[in-house]
């Protein structure tokens, strides 16, 4: 039972950190930096879902940008064309993304390894290409302009600082839900399905249902994040949802620590920060970024959170005992 206790303590520390994060706008006064933090927060929501999908059930997806795009476009179009308020539009966008998650989850349950990866890549590309070509609705390559701002309790969210709190609140809820899923019977069953489908099935687990449900969950996280993204940016176009974007999400999940909710948060913020910090270098910035990816997966196979746990395991356990 000790491990559960120390785990609880770790989680509590992590949540405190997230709450402490809420004071950030008082010392990050540079609006651009705040903007990047906000983006990182939105990406984190996508990565949380992806971590459940790819980390817990082992279904690697390189098409999360597709769900993200569906969330953005559905909520933006609902708000723009039918003047539906932000929260209802966002909820519908989340559900719509979840439906697409189910649709792609059905062929996906038969697939694994490279085949599954390719199916998800294909899905992401199909979404992007439809957005690009379905001009009457999506305005094609030009994209949508003037996506309405969200309203919270009658209060219109306008500035970066307002968005910071909206995104932080969403993030807290997202992290809580993801932690609950991961830490419950659902998460345990996901891991079992990932480790040995046959044995899980012999223990009465309906593996298809669990595999599809993970797709739906990850799609809903991405869809909700997308709806925030649209209103946050005000404009959007298919260029925001390329294959590279999906790859970025996957890198965040793996670098932070696949199969760790806390790792997903660290990965999303960490990689966004690294990528921004490297802007100073210009020129070969992304060469270094790529090298960091390669270096990390070779020398930190369990991601940043794995390194963290290793350090804790080596130094602190003795004290506690």
């Amino acid at each position: 039972m000790k491990s559960i206790m120390s785990r609880r303590r770790g989680l509590a520390a992590f949540l405190l950190l997230l709450i402490g994060y809420h004071f950030t706008p008082y010392f990050v006064t540079n609006l651009y930096h705040l903007h990047i933090l906000n983006l990182a927060g939105i990406y984190t929501l996508v990565v949380l879902g992806l971590n459940i999908l790819s980390g817990y059930t082992g279904q690697v997806s390189m098409g999360q940008a597709g769900f993200f795009a569906i969330g953005t476009y559905v909520s933006a179009l609902l708000m723009m064309n039918w003047s539906i308020p932000f929260w209802s539009a966002s909820a519908m966008a989340t559900v719509m993304a979840g439906l697409f998650g189910a649709v792609i989850g059905i062929p996906a349950m038969k697939l694994s390894g490279p085949y599954l990866v390719l199916a998800t890549v294909g899905f992401g590309e199909i979404v992007r290409l439809v957005l690009l070509n379905w001009t009457p609705v999506t305005k094609g390559a030009a994209g949508l302009v003037g996506i309405p701002l969200p309203t919270v309790l009658g209060f219109v969210v306008t500035t970066e600082k307002h968005f910071f709190y909206l995104i932080l609140a969403s993030l807290l809820v997202g992290v809580f839900i993801a932690l609950r899923i991961a830490d419950s019977k659902i998460g345990r069953t996901y891991r079992a399905v990932c480790e040995d489908e046959l044995a899980a099935e012999a223990m009465g687990v309906n593996i298809n249902r669990y595999k599809i449900s993970a797709f739906i969950i990850s799609a809903m996280f991405a869809g909700f994040a997308g709806s925030l993204f649209g209103s946050f940016s005000g404009v959007t176009s298919p260029d925001n949802f390329t294959f590279d974007e999906s790859v970025g999400f996957l890198c965040m999940s793996v670098i932070g620590g696949n199969r760790s909710i806390v790792g997903a948060v660290i990965g999303a913020f960490g990689l966004t920060a690294v990528s921004e910090a490297l802007r100073v270098i210009q020129g070969f910035r992304l060469v270094i970024y790529g090298s960091i990816l390669v270096f990390t997966v070779i020398f930190m196979p369990k991601g940043i959170i794995g390194l963290f746990r290793w350090i804790c395991g080596n130094f602190s356990v003795k004290e506690i005992d």
């Binding site: 070969f284 090298s291 990816l293 997966v297």
Partner: peptide, 30 residues
């Protein structure tokens, strides 16, 4: 080879080759 020696999970191998792609692409750009 180092990845295989460390018995890295398949997803790490995927990320590593994606990293190589990013490196090649941006070297070419440079």
């Amino acid at each position: 080879r180092p990845l295989r020696e460390r018995e890295a999970p398949p997803i790490n191998v995927v990320i590593a080759t994606l990293g190589v792609a990013i490196i090649c692409r941006n070297l070419a750009l440079g």
